[in-house]
Nucleic acid binder design. Sequence first.
DNA 1: TTGTCGACTATTTTACCAAACAGGTCGAAA
DNA 2: TTTCGACCTGTTTGGTAAAATAGTCGACAA
Lengths: 214, 214
Amino acid sequence: MCPRAETAPAKAVAKEEKILEAARKRFAYFGFPKVTMDEIAADVGLAKPSLYYYYPTKESLFRAVIASEQTRFLGNLEALLARETSAQAKLRNYVDLRYDLFRELANLSALGTQTYTEWKSLSGDLFRALEEKELGMIHSVLLQGERSGEFGTPDPLHTARTLLHVMHGLRLRLCAIPTGAVLENEAYAALRKEMDLVITMFIDGMKSHHSHLH
Amino acid sequence: MCPRAETAPAKAVAKEEKILEAARKRFAYFGFPKVTMDEIAADVGLAKPSLYYYYPTKESLFRAVIASEQTRFLGNLEALLARETSAQAKLRNYVDLRYDLFRELANLSALGTQTYTEWKSLSGDLFRALEEKELGMIHSVLLQGERSGEFGTPDPLHTARTLLHVMHGLRLRLCAIPTGAVLENEAYAALRKEMDLVITMFIDGMKSHHSHLH
DNA sequence: TTGTCGACTATTTTACCAAACAGGTCGAAA
DNA sequence: TTTCGACCTGTTTGGTAAAATAGTCGACAA
């Protein structure tokens, strides 16, 4: 209520986020090892030791960056699933969001694969936690689809997991393997089309499974 | 006809294959850089220079190893497609074979990912050529399924490519990302199940697409 | 002619050391 | 509460000498 009462902490939080943003940019462009704390400090107009007032280690700062990206994604995803639509529509929307996150992460990482695996190793637990939540959401959508009679699967959890792995696999493949496409954009457009086809196949496959049970 | 006429070259060919086999084992266990030509030579009871009589460079030997593995796979695949069965059955058999090749390559490479990407970079053209042929075969099976009325796709080539990419993506993911599974065998069993589910979804999806056109 | 190898070359890896660098700490001062 | 100068310490870097390895050549043998 009183603006003054919030001033001191608000300022600290604001600075924390400025640091986070500067770090995100640096890490994204140059990768974790090539970024120095001095540089990040300079970006936000501070000296190195001041950074340690907000983040105890370089790694914790990095993890904070990852966590913030993931939180944003999860927020969007949750909002999406909360909206009252068909399970199919939700699955397609999920693909949309997933693609966007892939795209963003790739955009920010000059070096593709390298950064990706680097991130994975530095904060594998975060990634695993994200996948866990992502899996849970897909799973719940599949269950919704089953309840509402849109489609069915013999094993919704297995299907959800496979779907998740397929999407990540496609993305990983794109990063790990030099595609024929010269332009990065082309490669991503192809990824997009493949993700769409996969989700279509899964939806149609699940519909047909359901109708077999009729 | 005359056994004598074949003796000299036959012996040479046999030795060539002994070298190939020794090299395969070494490369598989230790990876390309950690293997020396002396070691391979010793394995087959020769001195290093003799190897160069059969293979002009270390890399050519390595490529010969890869090529032989791939040829075997392609042979099996072709034999499979030649057999007179339904397109569905062929797709499922393709998954079988593909899985086996994944499994074998992984079995032979102590270091998983590392070796995989190493191989890719050293003989990317071979891998690309293999994928090209693999793609062609999947494509032809999809076309067969369409002709025979088993199922249909709006874009068979795109579907074939996506299927290929999905399978490779799943495998790649397994290599690149430390899974929760402690035992490697578990991880591969999971891969197997996922590959099966994907092909099921694709088959069902394509069936339903076909029946929509009815 | 086909196949083998000992001895040699050229290039890459390794081993090592010193200097620079970068993550992290501390106490003082706004 | 927030900032920073000075300091500490483990790691990376650069350069070099020694070792190892891919690849060559000419001689020798089947």
